[in-house]
Design a protein around this nucleic acid. Sequence first.
DNA 1: CGCGCGGTTGAAGTTATTCAATAGCCGTGG
DNA 2: CCACGGCTATTGAATAACTTCAACCGCGCG
Lengths: 239, 239
Amino acid sequence: MLRPSIDAVRSLAAILGQSQQTSNPGRDGIPFLRALFKSEKRLHLGPRSPMFREGERADYAYLLDSGVARTYRFFPNGRRIVARFLFPGDVVGLEFDDRYPFSAETIQEVYCYRVTIQDLDRLRAHSTRLRDELVWLLRDHIATRNVQIVPLMHQQAEARIARLLSTFALRNGCGMRNGTSINLPMPRGDIADFLGLTPETVCRTFTKLKNDGIIALLSPEKVQVTDARRLQALAEEED
Amino acid sequence: MLRPSIDAVRSLAAILGQSQQTSNPGRDGIPFLRALFKSEKRLHLGPRSPMFREGERADYAYLLDSGVARTYRFFPNGRRIVARFLFPGDVVGLEFDDRYPFSAETIQEVYCYRVTIQDLDRLRAHSTRLRDELVWLLRDHIATRNVQIVPLMHQQAEARIARLLSTFALRNGCGMRNGTSINLPMPRGDIADFLGLTPETVCRTFTKLKNDGIIALLSPEKVQVTDARRLQALAEEED
DNA sequence: CGCGCGGTTGAAGTTATTCAATAGCCGTGG
DNA sequence: CCACGGCTATTGAATAACTTCAACCGCGCG
């Protein structure tokens, strides 16, 4: 296991302190943390590979470099909740206390970086910046949930799908315009378990959006936005 | 405005460092932060008084001492989401970035403590402990959401109500047993807007739970648990 | 006393789920 | 090369769940 020394971290901080002038401020509040991840070995995971399991000690945090993954858990009756989709640039693992409350596994092939929480805590004691970035990350996580998840519960199927598309569009490129194409690398069942719907309803809703001329289904996993304005309006309506 | 000095905070920390032995460890990860709140003046707010408004600069954080409050926002079409109910001991305002993403107002008469984020940030720069407690608070907030909110989206009305009762029981006392009585100080409409249901459905569901012998409705705002086991089972089922 | 507001109940309508069947895709093996 | 099996996506029909609209109740307050 690579264990960056305190000195190494300090020099990293020094370098970053200057280089950050060029970066877009406010967009990425965790440049230092990212650099820390990237000082580790880049890991390769095949499709449908486990990253961590619900209930295990939360010893590692991950930064996705490419590919897509999901976090999920099961109800006692065996049904699944997909809590989050992980895209390139996303960090997972720092928001947990002691144990993972979810399992995580890749959907597609994934490249990622992994640090141990232990290392991170050790470094955190010596770096104000790391501490500040951790707070930023946690707040960003909460803010994202407030915007993306909380409203979902109050929305109809059509609005939930629209919101999902809007969210994915923001991740992939720079928002929804007419002609924007959106990748849905996960199966319909994942989308259903994320939105609290059934796969059938997800499917029917995509079909309905297509028939209404709001989207085009290039393939099951590739959607093109044809009426961004109406799609956005749908995402913001409750019923 | 009271502005605790750095020295005052340090001595506070010293006192707390010893006194915390007596407290229940792990239960409350923010004793220092609480002490900080309580060094401010105790504020009184009447029922249905605004605490802060969506979109305002997030300048203050609050610690509820008594009473109950809610945070909420509106959809473009005018419908309301209740994001959270605030109970005595809850802290609100530290999880936000720059601006409040919700409005907050009291339901009942409330006594609370208020600190400015500015003061807190200033003190944070000098106190490792305060920084650690902030991280603890944010993680706790995320964990609570993961347990209480994420599953709601995937559950039926009956399960959502059961989960709400279970959550409230944990706040008021020490969980649900037969005979436990649970206060619902907020109107049905608030519960509906929190769970993503209509007031009518909330009402019907309470009636159904009553008819099934799972709860007794002592009054609209006082529920007694009569079959804790079945209620708990309901809360953990998806359908 | 009567007005207003929240709570509750009823009936009809809408939405999503369930169960079932079909269509497409891909990899394996004959 | 093509047939087959398994899996996901899609569609249809019947059912169940929630919402909507409307009425009524009960209690507190002017």
